[in-house]
Design a protein around this nucleic acid. Sequence first.
DNA 1: TCGACAGTTTTGAATCGTTCTAAATACCTT
DNA 2: AAGGTATTTAGAACGATTCAAAACTGTCGA
Lengths: 142, 142
Amino acid sequence: MREVMTARPFSNALERLRSVGLRPTRQRLALARLLFDRGNRHVTAEQLHGEAGDAGVRVSLATVYNTLHQFTAAGLLNEVVVEPGRSYFDTNVDEHHHFFFEDSGRLQDIPGNTVLVSKMPEAPSGTAIRRVDVIIRLGAGK
Amino acid sequence: MREVMTARPFSNALERLRSVGLRPTRQRLALARLLFDRGNRHVTAEQLHGEAGDAGVRVSLATVYNTLHQFTAAGLLNEVVVEPGRSYFDTNVDEHHHFFFEDSGRLQDIPGNTVLVSKMPEAPSGTAIRRVDVIIRLGAGK
DNA sequence: TCGACAGTTTTGAATCGTTCTAAATACCTT
DNA sequence: AAGGTATTTAGAACGATTCAAAACTGTCGA
């Protein structure tokens, strides 16, 4: 399976932070590298905190949460909710949808052109559509 | 706005419980009535617990949770997750999708024929599609 | 009708992921 | 190097949900 190479004006974590106006601290740089230097990822805060630890980076869990939310607000990440009580952060911020493996709790991008929502309702008056999420829930199958 | 009258083989809470093999206890009957006797609803456990209290029915919060999960397992309810840390239970178990009002945290059914997912990916091998959720997130708009 | 037993409910404590708070520290400008 | 603000930290706090053990209730057979 190939990665779609989205042309981005960033070559690395530092520029990515600069581009959204976040001070490049040691922690944010380390987290940005973990998140963005290895293709598309879907991580929870706890996971990322674990990875940072494994990589020898000392970061508190609170900072991981802060950073994930700042990145999300800045448009570098998308928050995806599929299970009660747990948030996933997706490094792919393009329009796309997800498979959710109910058994393992894993989340996976659905290749861009294989889902199509061809008909959409009007937004109720006074509201505007912020985002459309399609989640295909999977179970063990034959 | 009119309710679509889905033809059901149940006329009341008692039969509904019997049909799925759950003992008709005082608590389950009361909750079933609150849930199903007033058209389609989207409730959280806390909300339902509150309504029971208002209606003069003594039920513990733990029982509300147990009952919601039993009803869901029995196919009488659908659990919908749109926000981290809170589950909604939907009395409409037919194929349909949702509007989510991000400001108020309210969930609303999208009329049946106004969303169409016209193209679907294959389920990854070894898995089967359990359910497809489409959530249209709404914000304040002009 | 009466027990008895399994199924249910209850209370309160426990757990989970997440957020908050206040103090300590780091980054950046001068 | 100092100063001031942004950031990070540890730990407490929080809200929704689950758990555990004891009390209760519905049902079925005698």
